[in-house]
Amino acid sequence: MRITVLGAGAWGTALARMLACRGHDVTLWDYFPATLEAIARTGQNERYLPGIELPTGLRLEPDAGRAVDGAELVVVASVSRAFRTVTQCLERFTGVVVTVTKGIEYETGLTMSGVLRETAPRARVVALSGPSLALEVARGVPTAVVAAGKDAEATRQVQMLFHGPTFRVYSSSDLLGVELGGALKNVFAIGAGVCDGLGFGDNSKAALVTRAIAEMRRLGVACGARAETFSGLSGIGDLMVTCFSKLSRNRQFGERLGRGESVDQILATMTAVAEGYPTARSAHALARRLEVETPIIDQVYAMLYEGKDVRQTVQDLLSRESKPED
C-alpha cells in the first residue's frame, strides 16, 4: 500500500518505520526540511529515536502536496497545535486518514478527527491511540492499541494494516471517546510528574491516577463519548503508561515543574512537545463550557498558565471537601 506519514517526530517516525519494514511504500514528510535532511544523512531520527535504524526504502519528501499525491492512506502525526495547518493538504483526499495526534483544539474544542472533518471533508477518518511509547514500538516491544472510527470498513482496514506480531490492534466505534482519552491523559501525566518532582510516593500517584480516571470519564461522557471507553486502552491504558513511564514527556514536564523549574524554562529546553501543556488549556476551557467538575485539570491549568505554586496546588486538591467515590 502507498502510505504517507505527515510528521517526523518520534511517533510518526516509529510508525513509518514499522510500516516500511512490513513492505509498504511509505513516504515521510515533516514541516522542517532539516529534519528530513538529517534522517537522509544518518539513516536515523537521532533527535527523537536515537539508535533506531530506519529502512533504506523509506522515502523522504519535504513538499506536503507531493507527499500526499498518490497515497492510498495518510497517517497524521503532527503536533496538535499545527494539526489544522498541516492537514490543509488533504482537502481533496478521498482515502483513509489515520490521526495519531493526541490533543484538543483550543479555539473550537474539537478533537483531531473533528478538525479533519473540516480540513479533509472527503476522507474517511480513523484514530489510532493507546499506551504506545514511540521508542518502545520502534524497538519492537509488544504493544496494544485501539483503532477507532465511525466507518466500520475503514476502521477494520486500519486495524489489519497496523496489526502485527508485536503491535496488537483492537477496534472501537467510539471515535470521540478514544481521542479524548488519549488527549486528557497527557494533562494528568503532568500532575503525576509533579508528584514525582515533589518527592511523593506511590500512594500519592496511585490516588491521583485513580481520580484522574473518574475525571476523564466524567468530561468524556459530557462530550458525548461512552463511559466504558475510558476503561480501555485509550483511557486507563494510556493514562497508566504516561503517568508512570520515565519515557513520558508529559510526566517529565511535571517532574521538572515539581522540582522548581518554571514553565518557560521547561518549554525552552524540551527536545519535543509535551502535548499536555496545550491540552490543559483546551481541556480546562472545554470543561468550563460544559460545566463539568474537573479539579485535577483545573489545578494543572493553574500551575501552567496562572503561575500557581505547585505545593499550594497539591494542598488545594487534598483540602477539598470529602465526598463519595464515583
Rank of each mutant, 00 (worst) to 15 (best):
V76E: 02
V79S: 05
V79T: 12
S80T: 10
R81P: 02
F83W: 13
F83D: 08
R84C: 04
R84I: 04
R84D: 06
V86S: 11
Q88Y: 02
E91G: 03
F93H: 02
T94M: 07
K102D: 09
K102W: 04
Y106W: 12
Y106I: 13
Y106P: 05
E107W: 12
E107Y: 01
G114H: 02
V115R: 01
V115N: 05
L116F: 00
T119K: 03
A120S: 15
P121Y: 14
R122C: 06
V125M: 13
V126W: 07
A127F: 14
L128V: 03
L128C: 09
S129P: 03
G130T: 14
G130P: 02
S132R: 07
L133K: 05
E136A: 05
V137F: 07
V137M: 03
R139M: 02
A147L: 14
A152S: 11
E153P: 06
A154E: 00
A154S: 00
T155Q: 04
Q157H: 11
Q157M: 13
V158Q: 10
Q159W: 09
F162K: 05
H163C: 14
G164L: 11
T166G: 02
F167T: 05
V169I: 15
V169D: 01
Y170T: 00
Y170R: 09
D174F: 03
D174P: 02
L176S: 09
G177R: 12
L180V: 02
L180S: 14
G181F: 11
A183I: 00
L184D: 09
K185T: 12
N186D: 14
F188G: 04
A189C: 06
I190G: 06
V194M: 04
C195S: 12
